[in-house]
Simulated scan of single mutants.
Amino acid sequence: MASRELVVLGTAGQTPTRTRNHNGYLLRWDGTCVLFDPGEGVQRQMVLAGVASPRVERICVTHRHNDHCMGVPGVLNRMALDVPGRSVVLTGPQDAFEHLRLLAVVAAAGVEVTVEGVPERDERVEVADVAGSRLSARRLDHRVPAIGYRLEEPPGRTFRADALAAAGIAGPDVGRLQREGELRGVRLEDVSDPRPGQVFAFVMDTRDHPAVVDLLSGADLAVLECTYADRDAELARTHFHLTARQAGLAAARAGVRTLALAHFSQRYPDAEELGEEARAAVAELGAATRVHVAADLDVVPVPPRRQGGR
């Protein structure tokens, strides 16, 4: 299996700092890449991270605030430089369609850009197939229409080598059994175990809302904003953002395995303070969610596939 991992290109909320670039999160997933919320300066961050732009086949934007999409023109120009004539899909909420279309026009790059608007609904909306996995989106609660994304691999099965050997099945017959479900009296379930598909979730600017837990449900890796500390909860409510405590509680309730916190306000020079608040919230619910405080240029692997039920 090709590697599945998140490359963090920027973690600043609204305003970049000396150590945090504007937003930018690249997901490597089975030979393709999806770029989420590229803010200003992401093209340079991609160079620093060693990210190859030709691998990016889709750019997903959560909403039209510029710290989440102003990097689009630069990324498109980088793509045109690396592989002239290539194509890319630019996705965002329906509300942001014209904004994204104009960003592509401004780029004036030699890239074929297809802009897609996703309806902002209170249930998951199918967006696309990404390397055999289902990309969906759902409306969040922000000052402008915003959506969060969920990438979900279909469930599969893991073969047991000892069971295959005992049944005398090897080589091409293994694939045939997988396709047909039965071979020479041996059923697929006799020699394999169910394997849940991996799930990645991406949720940026939003207030606390049921959609957050829904999008994060059972995620192996989730990126979640935590703009404010709990002591600034009123600011979070007023500006339609999450606190670190709210992020930790949401991830714990959703059964997230690894939570990557991002989108930090400049008022917190050390984001580890937010990480500690999120970890305390996870512990409060007795959950096993691992909390990672994302930093620019971090690489966060998607946890290995789980065997059996969740």
Rank of each mutant, 00 (worst) to 15 (best):
V7I: 15
L9M: 11
D205Q: 13
L90H: 02
L9C: 07
R195W: 00
C33R: 13
G41N: 11
C60Q: 01
L242S: 00
L100P: 11
S87R: 15
A288F: 03
R310E: 07
V203R: 10
P172T: 13
L26V: 15
R257L: 06
E57Y: 00
A254Y: 04
H99E: 11
D230T: 09
D214R: 06
V203H: 09
V89Y: 00
P73Q: 04
G218L: 09
T238I: 12
V115M: 08
D220P: 04
G275E: 06
V89Q: 14
T32L: 09
V302Y: 03
L274P: 07
G39I: 02
L6Y: 06
P172G: 04
S265Q: 07
V223F: 01
P301S: 05
V111R: 04
N23I: 00
R20K: 12
G24I: 01
T227C: 13
V174P: 03
V47W: 12
A250C: 10
R176I: 08
L9Y: 11
L188Y: 01
D270I: 03
G50I: 11
G218P: 04
T62V: 14
E123L: 09
V300F: 03
D298H: 12
G39K: 02
R138E: 14
H292F: 07
R253H: 12
T91M: 04
A167G: 02
V105G: 03
R245Q: 11
R207D: 09
V61M: 02
E40A: 14
G185I: 04
L35R: 02
A288M: 01
D129Q: 13
G171T: 09
V293Q: 06
L242R: 05
R290H: 14
H65D: 13
G275C: 04
H65P: 00
A170K: 11
V113Y: 08
A52G: 09
R64G: 11
V34Y: 03
G171C: 05
